[in-house]
Design a protein around this nucleic acid. Structure first.
Lengths: 247, 247
DNA sequence: CTTGTAATTAAACAAATGTTTAATTAAGGC
DNA sequence: GCCTTAATTAAACATTTGTTTAATTACAAG
């Protein structure tokens, strides 16, 4: 495949010549375009499998601009992580901190915050897979320290608060509980491409809502039938009990 | 770092010369060594980040042997997948099929089968991350068809069986339930490197057992306290209720 | 108007990587 | 004992990749 399209009628004048462009604020635009292209490519491909030439092509700039703006490929990657993951995680933290206060509010709100975020920004889950789960490289540690600790690291305390307030049974191991909680919150989005092919699910707003309700109820009550285990009927969390196969 | 150790006193005679080696059955050994080295490296690094030279070095053979035995790097990868994932998944399938039959037996047994396997063969989780979750390449589809479908694809039916036998509540959505189940079964192992740094857990046999019990109980009963929701006390699954912070 | 600096490009460079080749040695049948 | 084939190596090859360089243009200050 040729790099340039057919419309480019081989006049040399069309080819952009070197030199500073006219007008101002070009530099910032290029920086932003590079960050955007990097985010998209790094969410889709591994760090080593995303060549700088391709990132630059997606941003419609010269590869050398990466080194002009970010020093090297690592610098671009680091800047991309900061500028994209930062705001997202901050928002999740906010939402998790002041929960609504109603019964099971914290858990429900935390699940809703995390899940709606993962549903709205599909690249986050992909980035977590590559960055935190797959790659053994030097970035994993930075990522855990900077991001994962602020997110999942606080779940045991959240559970202990719930236990102190009597909404969670006292013999729960908060760490195991946190592990299960994080599993239920993250994995469906991490494994979404598989779930689509395997179960035919599609990531719509409705699906996300159903998943939030389902997971909240499962986390509190489990799936056991109220016959063999006399599990909660008429509970404050999952009030939608009219249809069948809802949660 | 030099390729050869200091002990190698630059005599040329020590360097292995080309030509067929004496004795027989060398070829098979080399093939096996390459498969083993490939499995270890591909579990740790991305496909593109695992150079053939390094795989060959780990197997102590010449890089050209990869092409002699497997055609190319893809061929080695494919052969490795078949020869390593095949037996493991077959075993899990067996264990999942004839469950013990006692109350909640299926769920408990399935969790135990999957989790002990993942704990004993740490490379499986890493391979799943790269192969099924991370990589968008041509291998993902093959992997889903060949392996994931035989494993996770059957969970909804398992849940429906449980529902028919009255051990699981009737209004559960089997697909959502399967998603949560698979999440709880796989994610702790997939995210193990993170969980270690975040929560200080270590993957011992004892931990795996605790996780199996915890997850089974959580899946059936949830974590809700029997005060606010009157959740099952005295249930058949999690009978170990003497200490505190156990499940 | 000159001069220095910022922004941008094409091209060159060096290292790494998948693959191929030619040479070399051993085995096995005739 | 010769000759074909199997197994193995070192070295060469071609491509891709991250990075650097030198040239080129615009702008801003003096």
């Amino acid at each position: 495949m040729a790099t340039r399209t057919a419309k480019n009628k081989n006049r040399t004048a069309l080819r952009r010549r070197p030199g500073r462009p006219r007008g101002e604020a070009h530099s910032e635009a290029i920086r932003a375009a590079l960050l955007k292209a990097a985010r998209q490519l790094f969410a889709q491909r591994d760090f080593k499998a995303a060549p700088v030439r391709e990132i630059a092509a997606a941003a419609r700039v010269n590869p050398a601009m990466i080194h002009y703006h970010f020093g090297d490929k690592d610098g671009l990657y680091r800047a991309m992580l900061q500028e994209t993951m930062g705001p997202v995680l901050q928002k999740v933290q906010e939402l998790m901190n002041h929960s609504s206060g109603r019964p099971a509010g914290s858990i429900h709100d935390a699940l809703e915050a995390v899940m709606t975020m993962l549903a709205r920004e599909p690249w986050v889950a992909r980035l977590i897979v590559r960055e935190v789960l797959a790659e053994e490289g030097p970035f994993r540690e930075l990522f855990i320290r900077e991001f994962a600790a602020r997110g999942g690291g606080r779940v045991p305390q959240l559970l202990e608060r719930e236990m102190a307030q009597g909404r969670v049974r006292k013999d729960l191991d908060p760490v195991l509980g946190a592990l299960s909680f994080i599993s239920m919150a993250l994995f469906p989005f991490i494994a979404l491409p598989v779930a689509e092919k395997l179960f035919g699910v599609r990531l719509t707003d409705a699906f996300t809502r159903r998943l939030v309700e389902h997971s909240t109820r499962l986390f509190y009550e489990g799936v056991g039938s109220n016959v063999s285990h006399n599990t909660a009927r008429r509970n404050p969390v999952a009030a939608a009990g009219r249809g069948r196969r809802t949660t």
